[in-house]
Computed example of a mutant assay.
Amino acid sequence: MSIVQIKIASPLDDIIIQATEQGVSYVGFYPAKEYPEQILKDVNNIHIHQCISQLDEYFNDTRRTFTINLDTKGTDFQKSVWQALLNVPFGQVQSYSDIARAIGNPKAVRAVGAANGKNPISIIVPCHRIIGASGKLTGYAGGLERKQWLLKHEGYPSQG
């Protein structure tokens, strides 16, 4: 399996995008370390090009949902959490307990938080839309300033 990678500029700093032949496998602010020996720099990959285009539209306020193929690696539980994240609408937030209930495991709040933190596809799988039960911003692998920026970009009220 080969993985292609590209780095693009964004309003939030550089974003690393990786994709396989099946779909996008990583979008984040730091280099992914999963398959360094298999990463190719040739980006003749339809999924990379679609991801770049759709992220550009998102940052330019012309896209609210993403329609690219994803190729995520994780446990079944993690994948169920990431799938639930895709159902959190643009500009809205939910809590970790909301996601735990959505996947039919209301007592798995901490496990949902851990899976949320392992989300390999930032922005597109919107883990930034998950906040603490108190309404406060909680951890984000890209940093809380980026999380706050993304939520503000989507029209969610600023967190003071």
Rank of each mutant, 00 (worst) to 15 (best):
Leu55Asp: 01
Arg63Glu: 00
Lys41Thr: 15
Arg64Pro: 07
His47Thr: 04
Phe29Asp: 06
Phe29Gly: 02
Ile46Gln: 05
Tyr35Gly: 08
Tyr35Asn: 12
Asn45Tyr: 04
Tyr58Gln: 00
Tyr35Trp: 15
Phe59Met: 02
Gln38Cys: 06
Glu37Val: 05
Gln54Pro: 04
Gln38Glu: 04
Arg63Gln: 01
Gln38Phe: 12
Gln38Leu: 12
Tyr30Leu: 15
Phe66Ala: 05
Pro36Gly: 05
Tyr30Met: 15
Cys51Met: 06
Asn45Ile: 01
Asp42Pro: 03
Asp61Asn: 13
Ala32Val: 07
Gln50Ser: 14
Ile52Pro: 00
Ile48Leu: 14
Tyr30Lys: 04
Tyr35Ser: 05
Pro31Trp: 01
Ile39Phe: 07
Lys41Tyr: 02
Gln50Glu: 15
Arg64Trp: 01
Asn45Thr: 03
Asp56Asn: 05
Leu55Ile: 08
Asp61Ile: 05
Phe66Asn: 12
Glu57Lys: 10
Asp61Pro: 08
Glu34Trp: 06
Tyr35Lys: 14
Asp56Tyr: 10
Leu40Ala: 10
Phe59Lys: 03
Ile39Glu: 09
His49Trp: 13
His49Arg: 04
Leu55Ala: 08
Ile46Asn: 12
Leu40Arg: 11
Glu34Ile: 09
Glu34Lys: 09
Ile39Ser: 04
Pro36Ser: 09
Ala32Gly: 13
Ile46Thr: 13
Glu57Leu: 08
Arg64Tyr: 06
Gln50Phe: 13
Gln54Ile: 02
Leu55Phe: 03
Lys33Ile: 15
Phe66His: 05
Ser53Leu: 11
Asp56Phe: 03
Asn45Ser: 05
Tyr30Ala: 15
Glu57Ala: 15
Cys51Asp: 03
Lys33Gly: 12
Cys51Phe: 09
Val43Thr: 13
His49Pro: 00
Lys41Val: 09
Pro31Glu: 09
Asp42Phe: 01
Pro31Tyr: 02
Phe59Thr: 13
Asn60Leu: 06
Asn44Tyr: 08
Ile46Ser: 02
Val43Asn: 13
Pro36Thr: 14
Ala32Ile: 08
Ser53Arg: 00
Leu40Asp: 04
Asp42Arg: 06
Thr62Ile: 04
Phe66Val: 01
Glu34His: 10
Thr67Ser: 14
